[in-house]
Design a protein around this nucleic acid. Sequence first.
DNA 1: TGATGAACATACTATCGGGTATGTTGTCAA
DNA 2: TTGACAACATACCCGATAGTATGTTCATCA
Lengths: 227, 227
Amino acid sequence: MEGRRKGGRKSLRMGLGIRERTLDSSRTAILEAAARCFHERGYAATSIDDVARALQSTKGRIYHHFESKADLFAEVFRAGMDMNYVALEPLRNMKGEAHQRWRRFAWVHVDQMITTRAFQRVVWMGVEMYLTGAPTPHQRALFEELFETRSRYGDIFRTLIAEGRENGHFQFANLSVANQLMFMTLNSPIFWYSPRTGETRADIEDLIAQVVTCAWRGLGGTEGAGK
Amino acid sequence: MEGRRKGGRKSLRMGLGIRERTLDSSRTAILEAAARCFHERGYAATSIDDVARALQSTKGRIYHHFESKADLFAEVFRAGMDMNYVALEPLRNMKGEAHQRWRRFAWVHVDQMITTRAFQRVVWMGVEMYLTGAPTPHQRALFEELFETRSRYGDIFRTLIAEGRENGHFQFANLSVANQLMFMTLNSPIFWYSPRTGETRADIEDLIAQVVTCAWRGLGGTEGAGK
DNA sequence: TGATGAACATACTATCGGGTATGTTGTCAA
DNA sequence: TTGACAACATACCCGATAGTATGTTCATCA
């Protein structure tokens, strides 16, 4: 799950000099700028120069850290997924019924969609690009591993709603369809959410609650149950 | 709502020669090929040559019928919306309670998303491009009218669920949020549906029913009500 | 303190794709 | 039958952009 650097080289020195301390921050800055650009304009319409401009920098800096445009995109994808896994980590050993755990998981997921939406949008785009099979064989190989990681993440929720249905807390006809519809609802903020001026954390949590409730109902969850 | 041709010229002759009879079919063929290409690769990643190749033809044919790539895209957008309006037409003077009418409208809408999904995907992309404001001022002007048409289409559903809530058949916190979530569910087939071999109309209708039910529940509709 | 390499910036190349200018063919009206 | 024009195909132009080759600076370490 850890992203390997260009060339996979590693420093052998002990301790961190300025270079080591700034490397990650520079790399992270590039990833964030790239996420914003891809988010706003899409993959094809975003040029490396666009990303460089957003950084008030030049191409050289980007190609120093990333092999290609596809590689940069893939690393943004990876970063977005890593954020999701990290956010879910505190809940991984949570106890309780599946439908209750689902609610907590879904809440965190929607929170991620809102607070890191540029990255999450890139994840969405990456999945789409992979499924439509547009990229070259080389890029497909690059994405294969990332896509599998994404699938495992999706399976977490899929398993929860399947278990919830067996326990009678969810009711739906087809698991795959229900899973798709659920994720569409939970992911939807990446499309329609945009921060409002003067927005508070409470406002955002109110939004999250509405989204989770909608998905919950869509799964046939009984009203008022699940905390 | 009627698409004007390149230059807006019209034949003054009476009757239809071969030219007139084949014009629309040729134009329609281009629109369909363009819809497929845009659907598969997105706007920026689709070249005019791609569309031409899909038609086993060349650029000249496309530029003979459409002024530019943006214009071609806009016409696919328009065609997609026209299909939706046409499909809803038979229901426009339907009587009954709002929530019941909503169900019928939603059913037809989802049916459209599945059976004309390439065009509907373009409509989605067009709305997104308009909202993110990527295009040039000229393209914005081109899309302004189309976007307003799209908004009016959306208002049909928005009005229905607002009325349904007043009548106590729907329950949700915020109208705009509920509307967004509803459309995400109803539109979602354009992302995950793909025709299966040996699929029957009954299979599709089963799918539609699941999607509509999910959206219905998400709106807080009471189980079993609304036909 | 000088050599080395990381972290960039600058300058350049090559390709691809939107758009145009022009050529070709078949149809229809007169 | 002939001139005109629609409906294309072909050939070309040019700007944008992914990628590269080469400079430059500065921290680090021997």
